[in-house]
Structure formats: C-alpha cells, structure tokens
Amino acid sequence: MLLSSLTFVLLFGYALLWTVIAQSVLKQAEQEDVVLPCQHRFGHLQSKNLDIEWLLQDSEPNQKVVIAYSSGAVYQNLSAKLRGRISFAADYLLGNASIKISSLHSTDSGLYTCKVKNEGIYDLKTAINLVVLVKPSKPKCWTEGQSLQGNDIKLQCNSENGTQPILYRWIHVLDTEGQQAKFHPGFHIDLQTPEILLLRNLSYAKAGRYECKASNEAGEKSCFVNVAIKRKMLKHQRRSSSMHNLLWGQQAQALVPVQSSLPRTEPLAPSSLELGRTRHPLLTHQQRKPRLTRVCQTRHI
C-alpha cells in the first residue's frame, strides 16, 4: 500500500514537472527569425544509430515531424508550411540539435518538441510553446463631434489586426504654431477605452496635431489627426448674419438690369414743317422772317 502511494506521488510529480516543462514559452515577432534550443547527451558518441526528430503540435489534432536526422541524412522538407524556412542551427552530431525557423508566420505558432534517440535510448527535451506575435496594423484616427469653441469632441483610434492585447496611447504632438504641445486638464482618457480621447470645453490651446500609438509585444504603429477649432457663433451674430445676407440678396436683385420685351425702333426723322420752325441760334429775327414769307407765298400760288 505504501509502495503504491509512493508510486502515485512520483508519477504525479513527474506529470506535474512535465506539464510545467511543456509550457516553456518562447515569443517572437512575425517576419523575424527564431532558434529553438535542444542540447542532447549523445554528442560524444560516434554512432550511426543517432536519430533526431522535431515534432510540432499546432491547431491540428496530431503531432507531425517537421525536421529529422536519421541514418546519416537530414530531412527538412517534411512540413509544407515550413518548407525552405527550417534547418538545423548547429552541429547536431556534437550534441546541439537546435533548429532555426526563418521569416516567421503567424501559423508557425505551436508546441515544438525535440526527441533524440541513440541505439534505443531516448533523450526527451523540453517542449517549447512558440508564440508568433503579430504587430498591430496601422491604426485609423478620426474625430467625432463639431470642433467648435466650447464643445466636447472625441478622438478615436483603432487597429484592426495584431496580437492582443493592443495598447493605445494619445500624444498632443504639435500646437497650432507647430510647437511641442502639452496635455491640458480638459483631456480625458477612460482606462476602459484608452483608444478614445475626450476633449472637453474646446479652446484654442487644445487645437493642433494629435498622435495615437497602437502597440503590443511585437511593436507599434501610429496615426495622426488634426484638430482645428472654429469660433462658435452667438445667437445675435446669427441673426445679424441672416439679415445681412437677406439685404444683400435684395440689393443684388435690384441691381440686375431689366430688359424690355418691346422691339427696338429707330428715331423718327424730323418733318419739313419742323425743319422750317427750327431756330438757328445764330440767325437774327430779320433773317428768319423772309424765309417764313417765302414759305407762305409759295403756299398761296
């Protein structure tokens, strides 16, 4: 009974130890290279019976061999998704069976196990949980609300892709004069939604250029938004502006020339009688009278 209990404790302890070892985590950013270490104890032996296998447990249910050494040959094209990107990183015959994976993809994440055997004796190594981190995608910045003096507006930022959690940080980069700006008491960030910056009671001191930085363990990306504040028009100013526009419209309408629809006519030529009555300013009374007499005499004949 005591032996059974002791055996159970040993097995439980071994299983617990193996579980802890199996959860050894190695994180690396996408597109980077990574080396998964594996040191074995058969390096001092010159044996042709050395076998090395690296196994991957990913989203698929079964483990699969991704690279191997057996019978004096290396097999490194066993995985379609790792083909051309996986290789031994050191001299595996001398006790270092570490592997290198180049240009990591997000699909390379998984549990990698190094298994070394020599003449029927196994040397199992630590399983490594490789986590490929994806940098945040370039975020988008935009504003919500009218940027009028005295109003409240929201600056929003969002990165659609990347390994979670993604952290957001707002910086007032430049003021309206292009100088380094500072945060003011009217800036409010809710820790529950750090991607939103609330600007309360807008003033010209809060205008300028803002930067949002989206970051995670793999890196960071930024976007920018400009805040230009307009003066809010008071009620009497709006009435004055409306009246001014109305009067200006009436004046403009009055200045438009009206074209007549009647046909244009040429001036009439003066009649002979009117020519006879025309007084020349240089003629005297005596000079004009004979002309009238002659006209009358002609009429009597």
Rank of each mutant, 00 (worst) to 15 (best):
L2D: 15
L3I: 14
S4T: 12
S5C: 11
S5K: 15
L6Y: 10
T7Q: 14
L11S: 10
L16D: 01
T19N: 14
T19F: 07
A22Q: 10
S24P: 00
A29K: 15
Q31L: 11
D33I: 01
D33Q: 02
V34E: 09
V35P: 00
L36E: 07
Q39K: 14
R41V: 05
R41A: 09
F42I: 05
L45K: 07
L45P: 01
Q46N: 15
S47V: 03
N49F: 13
N49W: 12
L50S: 05
D51N: 08
E53M: 02
W54K: 00
L56M: 03
V65Q: 05
V66A: 07
I67Q: 02
A68E: 12
S71N: 15
V74C: 06
V74F: 05
Y75F: 15
L78M: 13
L78S: 06
G84M: 10
I86E: 03
S87I: 06
A89G: 01
A89R: 03
D91R: 15
D91E: 11
L93N: 01
L94T: 12
G95S: 07
N96S: 11
A97R: 07
A97K: 09
S98C: 08
I101R: 04
I101T: 04
S103R: 12
S103E: 11
L111C: 05
C114T: 06
Y122C: 00
K125F: 02
T126G: 02
A127P: 08
I128A: 07
I128S: 05
K140R: 12
C141W: 03
T143F: 04
E144I: 14
G145L: 09
Q146V: 10
S147R: 11
N151V: 08
I153V: 14
I153W: 06
L155S: 02
Q156P: 01
Q156Y: 09
C157M: 04
G162A: 07
Q164N: 12
P165R: 06
P165C: 06
L167R: 13
L167W: 01
I171P: 00
I171R: 12
D175K: 04
T176V: 07
G178I: 11
A181Q: 04
F183Q: 12
F183Y: 03
H184Q: 14
H184A: 08
H184P: 01
H184Y: 11
I189R: 02
L191T: 01
E195V: 00
L198R: 10
S203D: 13
S203C: 09
Y204N: 13
K206N: 12
G208A: 09
R209E: 14
A214I: 10
A214V: 11
S215C: 09
S215T: 10
N216M: 11
K221L: 09
F224S: 03
V227L: 11
V227E: 06
V227G: 02
A228Q: 06
R231C: 02
M233A: 13
H236K: 09
R238H: 09
S240P: 00
Q250G: 04
Q251Y: 10
Q253K: 13
L255T: 12
P257W: 02
S261M: 10
L262I: 08
L262Q: 11
R264P: 04
P267K: 11
L268N: 12
A269L: 14
A269E: 13
S271W: 04
S272P: 05
L273H: 05
L275K: 15
G276H: 12
R277I: 10
T278R: 13
H280M: 09
L282C: 05
L283V: 08
R288I: 08
R291Q: 13
L292I: 02
R294D: 15
V295E: 15
